[in-house]
């Protein structure tokens, strides 16, 4: 059943926010494709634009304060040109979304069962009886022990892990072809996180959906992703299949990140620190390699004037040529 059809194609997407009457692009020329039956992870530190990218796919940005152009192609239509009514047709049965904070994305005044049913009312022609059964089935599918009781409960009566399961049940209720999971396990304990990730994998096997997984946790990426895109300052700076990326990271940013993980180095070693800070949206360098200011010991000629994307191995793409010259800075003896 493993087929590799492309189901979502993002082309040169720009998303700008209005600050002092001017637009600044938080997502700056991103191109991505998602295939059926794969988990594409988008990683990056806070403020790199990964959540902005995800929410824009189902049109959740505020049209008054954002400027979006480019193409998000799903079934030969550009999602960016659709109106609210047409988008509502897509949200749910075609593209489902799992949010980070399970408590604030559930309605505190509605029973769990009713919240899951809501999508079914809008998107299916099932009658009340069928919907009830489907809700029970969904709750069972996401690993909730006694679905009948939970369906009657309110969100505050459930634990964090249970709430996240409910959120997943809502997202998969209408059997979407694409699931967007924005930091689905960040608020959870490791044991619960492992269960939720296993659940996502199982669901994917059953439905064959494509999943976009947004996370900052490289461990989670290594455990579940098929392909990884690394974002920095609004751009994708490296993209590769998961094994390739973890074994042969190329871009200086990716390599620096890997060296910052406590787990990977022994405790006598110092962790790598990326010099400087992520530039704010207004101060983003719009020309040249955006990572250049954080690796000043690499000579300027190593960077391209107009950083292009290079294919360094099969399906492994890196932005800018500075990866060729990159080496870690020698530790000063302090």
């Amino acid at each position: 059943m493993k087929s590799t059809g492309e189901i979502l194609k993002i082309k040169d997407l720009h998303i700008g926010f209005k600050i002092n009457d001017e637009f600044y692009d938080a997502v700056d020329g991103v191109s991505l494709t998602l295939k059926r039956n794969e988990i594409l992870a988008i990683v990056g530190e806070s403020g790199c634009g990964k959540s902005t990218l995800a929410t824009s796919i189902i049109g959740l940005h505020d049209p008054n304060s954002t400027r979006v152009y480019g193409e998000i192609l799903y079934r030969n239509q550009n999602l960016l040109t659709l109106g609210e009514d047409q988008l509502n047709e897509i949200r749910g049965p075609e593209i489902g979304m799992i949010f980070q904070d399970p408590l604030s994305s559930l309605n505190p005044l509605m029973r769990i069962g009713d919240q899951i049913e809501e999508g079914l009312i809008y998107h299916t022609k099932q009658n009340a009886e069928e919907r009830k059964n489907r809700v029970q089935e969904l709750l069972q599918q996401v690993g909730i022990q006694n679905p009948e009781r939970v369906a009657r409960q309110f969100p505050h009566q459930l634990s964090g892990g249970m709430r996240q399961r409910v959120i997943i049940a809502i997202a998969i209720a209408c059997k979407p072809k694409i699931l967007i999971a924005d930091e689905p396990t960040t608020a959870l304990d490791v044991t619960i996180q492992a269960q939720i990730l296993d659940l996502l994998l199982t669901l994917q096997h059953e439905t064959g959906a494509g999943i976009i997984l947004i996370t900052h946790d490289l461990g989670v990426v290594a455990e579940v992703a098929d392909r990884v895109a690394v974002m920095y300052a609004g751009e994708i700076i490296e993209e590769a299949p998961v094994k390739e990326l973890f074994l042969h990271p190329k871009h200086p940013y990716t390599r620096s990140l890997f060296h910052s993980i406590p787990q990977m180095s022994s405790s006598s070693e110092r962790l790598n620190v990326i010099q400087g800070i992520v530039p704010s949206l207004i101060n983003l360098p719009r020309e040249g390699c955006r990572f250049a200011s954080r690796i000043p010991w690499i000579k300027a000629e190593a960077h391209e004037k107009n950083p292009q994307i290079h294919e360094v191995a099969s399906e492994h793409f890196v932005r800018c040529t500075c990866y060729k010259e990159f080496h870690f800075k020698k530790e000063r003896n302090s």
Partner: peptide
């Protein structure tokens, strides 16, 4: 053991 086994490892090898 359960806690340790739940920690994601930063390598896709052997997942």
């Amino acid at each position: 053991k359960r806690l340790l086994s739940a920690i994601p490892q930063v390598t896709p090898i052997g997942r």
